[in-house]
Nucleic acid binder design. Structure first.
Lengths: 264, 264
DNA sequence: CGGCCCCTTGAACTACATCAACGGGGGTGG
DNA sequence: CCACCCCCGTTGATGTAGTTCAAGGGGCCG
C-alpha cells in the first residue's frame, strides 16, 4: 500500500546510481494525527464497505513502527511476512541500478513474495504492519475485500504506467507539472492538502530522481514553473497558483488514479 | 493478461503522439498451435494448480476472437465486461499523449473498471475472452486462484516498474539490450523461443515507441548491438549471440518477472 | 564559528531528436 | 508479368534538451 521513494545515502558504495519509482504519502488528518484506521479510509475511497468488512480491517494491523528518515522499510530481495501501510510521512519505491537496491514492503509483497525493489523513508515514517496470514485469510473469507486489495495493486500498476508515459515524454516542464498534479490530487484524497497547497518535504535532488532529471535541470524547471505563475514553493510548502494551466502543461488526467466510488 | 502495444495508424489526426507501454506475446507451442489452455499455463508458471482449479479455468474462457493487425483489443475509457487473454500474436498497452488513446482489455479491467490506457494488436492476434462475472465467481469460491490472478496484476506492476527504471536510465544501448533480454526470457517461459532466438515481428519504429527513442536512433543502436556481436536480427528473427554480455549491457536481472514456482 | 547540505547560476559537452534523402522488398494494380 | 508505390531500414547533417562540471551563497546544526 505504501508507495514512497526514499533518498538513502550509501556514501561508501561506488555506484550510488538509483532511481525513485513512485512517491507515496501517509494518511493523517488535518491536525497531523494518524487516522484511526487508514486501511479502511484507503479502501473506502473506491467502494463502500460493510460493517463486517470494517470490523475485519480494524484488526488487520498487527502493530506499527516508526522508521527514521533514510531507513528502508523493505529492501530488494526481502521476503517479508507482512504488507506495510504507510500511516504518516513520505517514502518511495526505488531501485538501484547496477548494484544495490532498497524498497518499502507493501501489498505487492503478499503475492510477489520476493521484493524486486526497495522502499525507503524520505521523511520519518509511521508504518503499520499487516501480516500476510491476515491478508490470506481475507482472500479466503472476504472476497469483496480481496477484490479491493487487488484493485490497489492494479492502481499501483496504473500509476506506474502513467509514470512511464510521463518520463518517456519529452518535456521536463510537463513531467514536473504532472508530478505536482498527481501529488496534489492524491494528497487531497486523504485530506492532506490545505487550500491549494501541500507539504512537500523533499529536496530538488530527490525530485530529480523520481523524474529522471539532474538536480540542476530540476532547479531550472521549477524556476520556469514559478516564472509562469503556476506554483510557488517556499520551504516545505508547495502552493498551486494556477491549477488549470498546470494541468494543461502536465497533460494531466486523474482518471488513472481511480478515485471513483463504485462497486468492485 | 494480454500485454501488447499496438502500432495503430490514425493518419488524419493531428497528434499521432503516443507511447507503447508493455509488449506482450501469445502462448502457442512450437508448431504454432495455440496451447489447449493458456490461462492454465500462465498460472502454472508461478504455482501448482489442483485438478479442481484446472477444471474451473477450463471453462473460464467464454469465447475467442481474432483481431487484425492494427486493431484495438480495448480502448482507453472502455468499461469492458471481459478480461482478455492474448493467445497468439504481439500486442501492446499504450497511451496516446495530449488527445486520443487505445488499449487492450486485460485482468486490470476487472478491478479497475475503466481502462486508463489502450491495448492494440501489433500483429494479428487471437484473443480469449474471460467474463468478469467468471472472475468474480473465482474470487468468491477459489481464493487460491484469485491470489494467482492478483499475482499477475502485481507482476504487471513489477514489469512497469522495471520499465520506468530502464527508460529513465541514460543509455539507449542498455534500454535496447534490456528489452531483448526481457522478451527472450518471457517468450522462453512459454516455449516461444528456438535455440537462442525468437520471432519478433515488429518494426524498428515500434521498438522506438516502447523505448522512447526515435526510429533513427533505434536503428543506430541496433547496429551497435550487432557490431558488438550481441545479437543478429534478420527478417523477423532475432538471435542472441552473446547472452552473458547482453545481460551485462542491459543490467538485466529477471527476478522481477517472478518466474519462480512457489506457493502463493 | 565552522561545516554541510541545499539551492542557484554559468559554461561546456553530448546523447539524443529532427529533417532529409535513398535503396530495396513486397504488395497491388494495370 | 511488369510497373508503381509505399513502407521499412539505413545513412548523413544539423539542432537541442538535457547532462556534467564548477563554483558561490544561504541556512541550519553541532
Amino acid at each position: 500500500l505504501a508507495d514512497h521513494a526514499v533518498r538513502i545515502r550509501f556514501d561508501p558504495e561506488p555506484l550510488p546510481f538509483w532511481r525513485l519509482i513512485v512517491l507515496d504519502h501517509g494518511t493523517t488528518d488535518r491536525l497531523g494525527n494518524v487516522m484511526t484506521n487508514p486501511l479502511i479510509l484507503k479502501l473506502e475511497q473506491r467502494d463502500r464497505l460493510s460493517d463486517e468488512e470494517r470490523e475485519v480491517l480494524k484488526h488487520a494491523v498487527a502493530f506499527t513502527k516508526v522508521f527514521a528518515k533514510g531507513e528502508d522499510l523493505v529492501k530488494e530481495g526481502d521476503r517479508p511476512g507482512e504488507s506495510k501501510l504507510l500511516l504518516e510521512g513520505f517514502a518511495a519505491r526505488y531501485k538501484i541500478l547496477r548494484n544495490g537496491k532498497r524498497q518499502i514492503t507493501d501489498l505487492h509483497s503478499f503475492v510477489i513474495k520476493r521484493m524486486d525493489h526497495s522502499i525507503g523513508a524520505l521523511t520519518s515514517c509511521n508504518v503499520a504492519f499487516v501480516p500476510h496470514d491476515t491478508i490470506r485469510a481475507i482472500t479466503e473469507t472476504q472476497p469483496h475485500l480481496a477484490r479491493l486489495l487487488w484493485l490497489h495493486t492494479a492502481i499501483d500498476a496504473a500509476i506506474h504506467r502513467q509514470q512511464i508515459v510521463t518520463i518517456g515524454g519529452d518535456q521536463a516542464l510537463g513531467r514536473m507539472a504532472h508530478l505536482f498534479c498527481e501529488l496534489f490530487v492524491r494528497l487531497r484524497s486523504v485530506g492532506q492538502t490545505e487550500d491549494h497547497g501541500f507539504n512537500l518535504p523533499l529536496t530538488q535532488s530527490e525530485l530529480g530522481d523520481t523524474l529522471g532529471l539532474s538536480t540542476v535541470h530540476v532547479n531550472r524547471t521549477i524556476q520556469e514553473l514559478r516564472a509562469q505563475g503556476l506554483i510557488t514553493w517556499r520551504g516545505d510548502f508547495v502552493t498551486i497558483e494556477n491549477w488549470e494551466r498546470l494541468t494543461e502543461v502536465a497533460d494531466f488526467d486523474p482518471s488513472y488514479l481511480n478515485l471513483v466510488h463504485e462497486p468492485r
